[in-house]
């Protein structure tokens, strides 16, 4: 059943000169789902998003297909853009103008009648808790307010698909939680959401499905909880002292633990909590810590700890 897919992508590639930014990627996003794309900087996330709304043209090859609401962005980008709202990675508000004027300009792009636009702007500003900033100049706004205003701008035409490129990067926890809350509300109202992020907790909180990519390739795809269950041990012990770790590492049962010792902190992964606890008894309380594994552990496991040339 693919009748409810808002986005369907099959075998797309994108090459810039000699850089292969996206390599043979496929996925689908169902209506009113939140689909999150994770990956280190330079993994090809933004390029992938661009190919969804016609900002980036995919490589020509026979197998590649992109369908958004049934339209191919290569030929019918205007229809897709009319149905979608986009929050780009970098803020690009018109600094000369105030909040209302910024939104007024964009309501023209969608040919929203003046009266309707005015009402919608007021209710969206309220939704994003910016109602007191109507007359403020852009440079008087904080980073979090600017980001919320750009989300308002993307919502002007009541989009059925919202594309968010790192919506909360660089924002404080209060604003991040506010934005997450709003995204959840939009989802409830049946808006489909495509989201890129570096924050694993963001993806875990919001996404029904995640796709981890690295170097333009898909590494993993699935529901966050299922991915965790299938691809990584349940527990991890962080040993903060390298010296102590070196002492204990000789008599570790390698069948029961997997170690990751690239950095100063050594990580011991295992499904056997009792075994980890028994190892911990030889350490003092301050130099170790046992917790459940999370998406970040999975992410580091699958994309590696080394920096790539784009990071």
């Amino acid at each position: 059943m693919t009748g409810n897919d808002v986005i369907r992508i099959r075998h797309i590639c994108k090459t810039f000169d000699d850089l292969k930014a996206v390599r043979d990627l496929s996925f689908s996003v169902r209506e009113s789902a939140c689909f999150s794309i994770l990956g280190p900087n330079g993994a090809g996330k933004t390029t992938l998003m661009g190919m969804v709304y016609g900002r980036t043209r995919r490589d020509k090859n026979k197998e590649s297909r992109v369908s958004v609401f049934g339209y191919d962005p290569l030929h019918e980008e205007l229809k897709i853009k009319y149905l979608a709202g986009v929050v780009p990675q970098e803020n690009n508000l018109d600094e000369e103008l105030n909040v209302m004027q910024n939104l007024d300009i964009y309501s023209r792009f969608y040919q929203i009648p003046k009266k309707t636009a005015r009402d919608r702007i007021h209710s969206l500003l309220e939704f994003m808790e910016l109602q007191d900033k109507k007359k403020s100049r852009i440079r008087e706004l904080s980073g979090g307010m600017k980001r919320r205003l750009i989300i308002v701008r993307a919502l002007l035409n009541n989009p059925r698909l919202l594309i968010l490129d790192e919506p909360t990067t660089g924002l404080d926890p209060q604003v991040r939680h506010l934005i997450w809350d709003k995204i959840r509300q939009l989802k409830k109202e049946r808006t489909t959401i495509l989201l890129t992020t570096h924050y694993m907790d963001e993806a875990f909180q919001l996404a029904d499905k995640i796709l981890i990519m690295d170097n333009g390739r898909k590494i993993l795809e699935g529901e966050p909880k299922v991915l965790l269950k299938r691809n990584i041990e349940r527990y991890v012990m962080e040993v903060m002292s390298r010296e102590k770790y070196n002492k204990m590492k000789t008599d570790l049962d390698r069948k029961r633990v997997r170690s990751d010792e690239v950095h100063e902190v050594a990580l011991l992964y295992s499904n056997d909590l009792a075994y980890l606890k028994s190892r911990a008894s030889r350490l003092t309380a301050g130099d170790h810590f046992i917790r459940q594994t999370n998406l970040e552990d999975l992410f580091l496991k699958t994309t590696g700890r080394k920096l790539n040339e784009n990071q």
Binding site: G54, K79, K81, V86, P88, N91, N92, F109, I163
Partner: peptide, 14 residues
Amino acid sequence: FDKVYDGMLAAPIN
């Protein structure tokens, strides 16, 4: 610098 076109090209114009 201002990335104005990133916003404009996300609206329904080509």
